[in-house]
Write a protein that binds this DNA or RNA. Sequence first.
DNA 1: ACATTTCTGTTGTTTTTACAACGAAGGAGT
DNA 2: ACTCCTTCGTTGTAAAAACAACAGAAATGT
Lengths: 218, 218
Amino acid sequence: MKNIFNVISSNPLFNGISCDEFKKMYPCFSTKPFCYKKNDTIIFSGDTINSIGMILSGCVQIIKEDINGNINILTELSVSELFGEVFVCANINQSPVTVIAAENSEILFINYRKIITSCQNSCTYHIKLIENMLTLIAKKNLMLNRKIEVLSKRSTRDKILCFLDLERGSEKKFAIPYNREEMANYLCVDRSAMSNELCKMRDEGLILFDKNKFEVLY
Amino acid sequence: MKNIFNVISSNPLFNGISCDEFKKMYPCFSTKPFCYKKNDTIIFSGDTINSIGMILSGCVQIIKEDINGNINILTELSVSELFGEVFVCANINQSPVTVIAAENSEILFINYRKIITSCQNSCTYHIKLIENMLTLIAKKNLMLNRKIEVLSKRSTRDKILCFLDLERGSEKKFAIPYNREEMANYLCVDRSAMSNELCKMRDEGLILFDKNKFEVLY
DNA sequence: ACATTTCTGTTGTTTTTACAACGAAGGAGT
DNA sequence: ACTCCTTCGTTGTAAAAACAACAGAAATGT
């Protein structure tokens, strides 16, 4: 139980809230963690949702089925990451996605209403919680915006250039957190075509790279 | 002043807050509206920001300059829309974008700290405000997710199919809020290529359309 | 040390897209 | 009725991407 508190209280959702404060709040808005076996479905598409899920251990996949029944893995989340927070905050009551345990997992469900509604405990904690939630979702928003900025580019080269611009702060040399396949996946282009384009750009003297280390020369 | 209150209090940010309540809160978190002439810069890229902008009249453009100095119009916003809310909520202090008045405009700036910090006025108003803000940003988040889902598709046809699936609820016949050029812009593809693809899909018996009215046949 | 797997770059072919240019239909305004 | 303008579809060409298939290098496991 002790390390669970560590996982939870180190989550950005509880930023600025001490472990002691957290222990006082804890019973107020959440239940005991649930355990799921690998391949268990945690949330079915269409289920009513009013809680945010926090992964205490293991790993889950967010899955969407299209009209034809094709399943599509949207993301894979691991320890200390949240899911469902955007839906509950947007007042979407029915989950549009399915969540399954990719490994044996422990999930803590945190009731949204109890987060945003003040209670007997000092109101300031709740304000802090909500502020954290706002920050969290706003930052996710910015990440999505960045991705859209990249995907908006028509050509693979422009996607790469845009991506690299976002990855380098103002540094000329920098490392990216992806390998080639992951990068191609992020850019939504073919890996070999991207590899090809990267090498062309190197040959034209635009960039240098080795593995995940890049250097821009412009 | 009366119709300003109408614009403001009908904004989703003030959902569930009556006009009377709003008038009580108003002096607490905002200043008088600012006026800008057409082409005035409202916020320079790099400016410190700690307020959310609400457009009371007129129209603004959100602009981003890339490293080479190319300017890029990200969006155009009009009456009652907000800007800057994502940055302040994500604790981004320096604006990464430039905001200019596309027409003569009146802008109300609402201080973020004063929204999320409780004051002498009943705390419940603030809770409601923050909840609205959360809902607002979470919904924007969902919109961005939808756009990414579309842009992730490799081919124009798949983009179109994905887009149409999102636009139709479960209806076979539906109207989209774009003309061809706007739709192509949303899908980030060439208009004529998209038009071409749409007609192929019609000829193959996949869809029917007339102007902005579509019908899916699958 | 060896076998195996993963990662990356390369090449050639086929398919798709972008781009430019044009024509037809319909609306708005005079 | 006429022009002007916007919207939409069509065509051909050139460029780019997807795809498949393979080869070398590096990392991993035994």
